[in-house]
Computed example of a mutant assay.
Amino acid sequence: MRPLRRLFCIALVGLAAVQPFASAAEPQNGSQYLTLPTPQPTDTGKKVEVIEFFAYYCPHCYAFEPQLAAWVKKQGDNIVFKRVHVSAGASALPQQRLFYTLDALGLLDQYHQKVFDAMHVQRLRLGSDEQVMEWAAQNGIDRARFADTYRSFGIQAKLRRAGAMMEAYNVDHWPMLAVDGRYVTSPSRVHQGDTEMQQQQATLQVMDWLVDKAKAEKR
């Protein structure tokens, strides 16, 4: 298996070195976004599907979350937004299970930011099943119900599905965003601006363009 957990940090500086200049307002295929060689199926009808591939441990995903959440809210009914927690090695597996367990229990909206804050503000590792169980219980989630779901076949199926989607979308760094099963982009690919926040803002500008493009192609 590729050492996926390391690839984002490499990509942040590596992609910029090989990309020609392009404006976020007029992004170019092969530069600030890529067209997938094989389009992936979507089930969102006339709405545009947007998927974020992310990991809770990733500091860049944590930094991106506020701007991305605001962008999703602004898009409203224009898109259907989904998240995929990437497979990133044994130490991140409990966090991946945590994400899909919260989702299965209908608690993701309530606890998603709290997980990020636990790792990046409180500096909790959440690197073992027991640490995740303890965190869930301390945050008011019924431990037995959480544990049953966490260890269920359903969650195992979601983990396999996440791995398959990473392969299908050629995900080798994160955060990465996919639009309507055809286009992918990321702050490390856009790489416009002197700060990480500026790169994130430029990425969302590219996302606006890609959503409009995908929406027009659905007509």
Rank of each mutant, 00 (worst) to 15 (best):
L4T: 07
F8C: 11
A17M: 15
A17D: 10
V18Q: 15
S23L: 15
S23A: 15
E26K: 14
P27H: 04
P27N: 01
Q28A: 12
S31L: 03
Q32W: 08
L36N: 11
P37E: 02
P39H: 02
Q40L: 10
P41D: 02
P41R: 08
P41K: 06
T42W: 08
T44N: 09
G45W: 07
K47I: 08
V48D: 00
E49S: 01
F54D: 02
F54Y: 14
Y56K: 11
Y56V: 07
C58A: 03
C58H: 04
P59R: 03
H60K: 03
H60D: 09
C61F: 05
E65A: 13
E65H: 12
Q67D: 15
W71Q: 06
W71C: 00
K73W: 11
I79D: 07
F81H: 10
R83W: 05
V84R: 02
H85F: 06
A88F: 00
A90H: 10
S91G: 04
A92T: 12
L93R: 06
P94N: 02
Q96A: 05
Q96E: 09
L102C: 09
A104K: 13
L105Q: 07
L105K: 08
L107V: 11
D109T: 13
Y111M: 12
Q113V: 13
K114R: 15
V115F: 01
A118S: 13
Q122E: 11
Q122G: 08
R123Q: 13
R123N: 10
D129C: 10
Q131W: 05
E134Q: 13
A136C: 09
I141C: 09
D142T: 14
D142Q: 13
D142V: 12
R143S: 05
R145T: 13
R145H: 11
F146M: 06
F146T: 03
D148H: 15
Y150A: 08
Y150P: 09
S152H: 07
S152A: 11
G154P: 09
A157R: 12
L159V: 15
R161Q: 11
G163N: 04
A164L: 14
M165E: 06
E167A: 08
N170S: 14
V171M: 03
W174K: 04
P175C: 01
A178S: 12
D180T: 09
G181V: 04
G181W: 01
R182Q: 11
Y183G: 02
V184R: 01
T185G: 05
S186P: 06
V190W: 01
G193T: 07
G193Q: 12
D194G: 14
D194I: 08
T195C: 09
A202N: 11
A202L: 07
T203F: 01
L204T: 10
L204P: 00
L204M: 07
L204V: 03
L204F: 12
D208Q: 10
D208Y: 07
W209M: 04
L210W: 00
V211R: 05
V211M: 04
A214V: 02
K215H: 12
K218H: 15
R219I: 14
